[in-house]
């Protein structure tokens, strides 16, 4: 069974580099790509009554926007490489959700781009790549 390579994709330049790097890797090994976009979400945040009412509608809009503005253009771009590519869009804690997707899909490796935030903001807020390198269930490649 060919390897599945999971690409964490948020539309940034770093994520695009990671996707291209993973595509090259998949092509050379005969593997396939799974492009994952995770929308940051916690079920423990506080919403106004209006936000509650509109949440389902907004979720639909957010998913559609992620699909058309982020994931679809990348899939179009990668279609020329000849690598089999699928995509998934989820809500949740970004690093944890990526790990779950990796486990569920049986991915052999995770590829993620480095965002290049300053040391200070990374220390304060952490980074997805940093968290992933600590908790990923499979090898994780951070593409600079």
């Amino acid at each position: 069974m060919p390897d599945v390579f999971l690409v964490a994709y948020d539309g940034s330049e770093g994520a695009k580099r990671a996707a291209k790097y993973a595509a090259n890797h998949a092509k050379s090994t005969g593997g396939s790509l799974l492009i994952a976009h995770v929308l940051e979400w916690s079920p423990y945040t506080f919403l106004t009554p209006n936000e509650l009412e509109e949440r389902h509608k907004r979720r639909g809009e957010e998913l559609e926007r992620a699909e058309t503005a982020l994931v679809k253009p990348l899939l179009d771009e990668l279609s020329g490489t000849g690598v089999k590519t699928e995509s998934v869009i989820k809500y949740g804690h970004v690093a944890e959700t990526l790990c779950k997707i990796a486990s569920d899909s049986g991915a052999a490796q995770i590829f993620i781009g480095r965002t290049g935030h300053s040391m200070m903001s990374t220390r304060l807020f952490g980074s997805v790549a940093g968290s992933l390198s600590q908790i990923a269930p499979v090898p994780c490649t951070i593409v600079p």
Binding site: P43, Y44, L52, R55
Partner: peptide
């Protein structure tokens, strides 16, 4: 959230409905 389906993430959770009702 023990009984919440992960595929429903992004929808209004039980916690959020409770918190909003409580703030009222």
């Amino acid at each position: 959230g023990d009984y919440s389906d992960p595929d429903d993430a992004g929808e209004v959770s039980h916690f959020q409905a409770l918190a909003t009702a409580l703030s009222g």
